[in-house]
C-alpha cells in the first residue's frame, strides 16, 4: 500500500489546528470589532437594578458627552472583575466585598462611586413566623447559598448572636423553600425574592442587615488604577451621564420600570415586579449623605465602617481601595 506523504510534524500541526478548532471555533467570527464603543459591565441580568444606566442610554446623556456606551449584562455565571481587569470594559459594577476579594488576587481596582449606600442583603420571613430583629434568628432554619455563610457569620458577630444556634439550609436563587415551609427565613436581596413573593401574593416580612450594622457598599463602580490615570476624561463623562440617569430615575421609578420592560422585551420581565423593585431600591440608594452631596457619594467614615465589616468577612482591605477623586471633580 502506498504510504501517505504526511510527516509526523505535519500531522501534529494538523492536530493542533483541529484542537484550536475545538477550543475557539467562533472566536474570530464573534470577537468585537468596534473599538470606539465603551463597554460598561453590569453585574447581573437586565432589570431596574440598572435603571439609571438605561435612562442615561435612552435619554442620550452619554451621547451628549460624545460617548458611545454599550451596556454588557452579567448573569449567574458571568463574572464582572476579569472583564474590567482585562480592559474589555472600562467600568464595572460589583459589590465592595467582591472588589476587595479581587484586589487580594492582584486586581488593581479602585471604587470610584457607590450606588447602594445600604447593603441590600435582607432576611425575609413569613408573617406568622417572622424575623423582625437579629435576636429572632435564634433557633430558626435559614435558607441561603452556602457561599453567603460569611455574611451571616459577620452579621451574627455584629449583633452578638451565636451562629451555631441557627440552622443553615443550603438553597439557591429561589423563594420556593420559604413559601413551601422547608425553611423559616431566607437570606436574600431586599429587591429580589421578597418583591417576587409580594407580587405572587405571598405576604412577607423583611429585615435589612444594613439596619443592624452590616455595612458593605453594594453596586459600586470599579475601574483599574491604570485607566483612572490614562482614560480619566472618559470615566468622568461616563459617571456624569450615569449620575444624571439615576437622578432622572428617582423622579419617576414607575416610568423607568416601564422603560426597562420595553427595552428588554426578550427577557419576559414582569412589569409589576419591576415597578415594586424600582421603588424599593430607592431606599437603598439614597441616604442623608446622598441628599447632601449627591448620588454615589461616600466618606472616610462610611469607608471605615466598610473596612470593619469586611474584616469580619475575612477581607483585609485598606482605604486605598476607595478613590473619590472622580466624584469630587464631578460635584465640585
Amino acid at each position: 500500500m502506498k504510504l501517505l506523504p504526511i510527516t509526523r510534524r505535519e500531522s501534529l500541526s494538523f492536530l493542533a489546528g483541529a484542537a484550536a478548532l475545538i477550543l475557539t471555533p467562533a472566536g474570530l467570527v464573534f470577537a468585537k470589532t468596534n473599538n470606539t464603543t465603551i463597554n460598561f459591565q453590569l453585574s447581573w441580568l437586565p432589570s431596574v437594578q440598572f435603571g439609571g444606566s438605561y435612562v442615561a442610554q435612552e435619554n442620550g446623556y452619554w451621547n451628549d458627552k460624545g460617548l458611545d456606551v454599550s451596556l454588557v449584562s452579567g448573569g449567574p455565571n458571568a463574572p464582572v472583575e476579569p472583564s474590567v481587569v482585562v480592559g474589555t470594559s472600562l467600568l464595572g459594577i460589583t459589590a465592595a466585598d467582591y472588589a476587595s476579594a479581587a484586589v487580594a488576587e492582584g486586581a488593581p481596582f479602585k471604587i470610584i462611586a457607590v450606588a447602594m449606600q445600604k447593603n441590600p442583603f435582607t432576611i425575609a420571613s413569613l408573617p406568622g413566623n417572622s424575623v423582625n430583629s437579629p435576636a429572632d434568628l435564634v433557633g430558626k432554619k435559614i435558607g441561603m447559598a452556602v457561599a453567603n455563610t460569611p455574611i451571616l457569620t459577620a452579621f451574627c458577630a455584629l449583633n452578638n448572636i451565636d451562629i451555631n444556634k441557627i440552622d443553615i439550609v443550603p438553597t439557591q436563587y429561589d423563594p420556593a423553600p420559604l413559601v413551601n415551609g422547608e425553611v423559616d427565613c431566607l437570606l436574600c436581596w431586599l429587591t429580589d425574592l421578597p418583591v417576587a413573593m409580594t407580587v405572587a401574593g405571598v405576604e412577607n416580612v423583611t429585615m435589612l442587615l444594613a439596619d443592624y450594622g452590616y455595612a458593605v457598599h453594594s453596586q459600586t463602580y470599579i475601574v483599574t488604577e491604570n485607566t483612572l490615570k490614562t482614560r480619566r476624561a472618559e470615566i468622568i463623562a461616563l459617571m456624569k451621564g450615569e449620575i444624571q440617569g439615576w437622578n432622572t430615575y428617582f423622579e419617576d421609578t414607575d416610568a423607568v420600570a416601564e422603560l426597562t420592560v420595553a427595552k428588554f422585551p426578550d427577557l419576559g420581565l414582569d412589569l409589576e415586579i419591576q415597578k415594586l423593585q424600582a421603588a424599593k431600591q430607592v431606599d437603598l440608594m439614597s441616604s442623608a449623605l446622598t441628599e447632601k452631596f449627591g448620588f454615589g457619594w461616600f466618606t472616610d467614615k462610611t469607608v471605615a465602617e466598610n473596612i470593619a465589616t469586611l474584616g469580619l468577612l475575612g477581607r483585609e482591605v485598606s482605604a486605598d481601595l476607595w478613590d473619590r477623586s472622580i466624584l469630587d471633580e464631578i460635584y465640585s
Binding site: V179, A196, D266, L267
Partner: peptide, 18 residues
C-alpha cells in the same frame, strides 16, 4: 453566562421570580 436573550436567560428569570 450573561446572555441578553434566550431560553436559558428566561429560565433563570422564571426561577428567581417564583
Amino acid at each position: 453566562t450573561g446572555a441578553d436573550r434566550g431560553i436559558g436567560v428566561l429560565s433563570i428569570q422564571a426561577m428567581r421570580t417564583l
